[in-house]
């Protein structure tokens, strides 16, 4: 399926990476760089703030990939990710005039989208920091069982699809913290504020999320090793 084209002048420069699995020179999606914002975007932003619909459409084109991908990672399914993206841009439309430029616009929009997703998840009654998840027994069972022999060690390179699948399979609370911290680059104190939990809780959930991912990836590795043997 061909990817729809974004005109070059609208394309987010941070997102021009191709599909190569090689690690890019810098992290893919982090906070907006501290460098000065693109003057062309600043102008579009100012027009959108003044109520120009065409400018708002341009802002959408500039940020849709990043916001949709964020929503998709956080909720783990396409239909909901579309709803959340729509809600995020609706909120943006309502609030855009209040953006004062204290932070980069892309950072502000990113936070707005996260809050939209968290609010929707809470509305659906999802306990973001689930006690069950937090209480799930992990290392106590001993190293022999959970933390296999060295030959099960991940090879040092992880397949992108395998990782995406493993993340999508995480319990919702683990996934949120893993995405916010390891993928999006937020600090534990910021996550604790967003999720209304303690910093310690954020740290321990992240650790458990990574342990769970390791388990899943090791299991996948064993399966594919068997397949190649036979």
């Amino acid at each position: 399926m061909p990817q729809s084209e974004v005109p070059a002048h609208l394309a987010d420069p941070a997102e021009n990476e191709s599909v190569t699995p090689q690690p890019p020179a810098e992290p893919v999606v982090r906070y907006a760089p501290a460098s000065a914002p693109d003057p062309a975007e600043a102008e579009v932003l100012a027009r959108a703030q003044a109520g120009d619909h065409h400018a708002f459409a341009q802002l959408y084109a500039l940020h849709k990939r990043r916001i949709y991908s964020l929503c998709l990672r956080m909720v783990g399914n396409i239909a909901e990710a579309e709803d959340m993206t729509q809600e995020a841009f609706l909120q943006l439309h309502r609030k855009i005039a209040t953006f004062r430029g204290d932070s980069a616009f892309s950072t502000w929009l990113h936070r707005l989208a996260i809050n939209v997703v968290l609010m929707q998840l809470r509305k659906k009654g999802l306990n973001l920091i689930s006690l069950d998840e937090a209480m799930e027994p992990t290392p106590e069972e001993g190293p022999g069982r959970s933390f296999g022999a060295p030959d099960l060690r991940l090879s040092g390179s992880i397949d992108r699809l395998a990782l995406e699948r493993a993340v999508a399979d995480l319990p919702a609370g683990y996934r949120l913290i893993f995405i916010l911290h390891d993928v999006e680059g937020y600090e534990h104190n910021e996550i604790a504020t967003m999720l209304d939990c303690s910093i310690g809780n954020s740290k321990s959930q992240l650790h458990k999320a990574r342990l769970k991912l390791r388990e899943t990836l090791q299991a996948q590795g064993r399966t594919s090793a068997k397949e190649t043997q036979s």
């Binding site: 990817q3 729809s4 997102e15 990476e17 599909v19 699995p21 690690p23 890019p24 992290p27 893919v28 999606v29 459409a57 959408y60 849709k64 990939r65 990043r66 949709y68 991908s69 998709l72 990672r73 990710a81 579309e82 993206t85 729509q86 841009f89 609706l90 933390f147 060295p150 099960l152 060690r153 991940l154 040092g156 390179s157 992880i158 992108r160 990782l163 995406e164 993340v167 893993f178 390891d182 993928v183 680059g185 650790h207 990574r210 342990l211 991912l213 390791r214 990836l217």
Partner: peptide, 30 residues
């Protein structure tokens, strides 16, 4: 090995997740 794996996972998260395009008709809905 455990520690190295956890580090590998954290690094992979930072590097492997790429952004994807939303469906074309989403803008119409918005």
């Amino acid at each position: 090995a455990l520690l190295a794996d956890l580090q590998t996972i954290a690094d992979a998260a930072r590097q492997l997740f790429t952004n994807v395009e939303p469906p074309d008709d989403l803008w119409k809905q918005i």
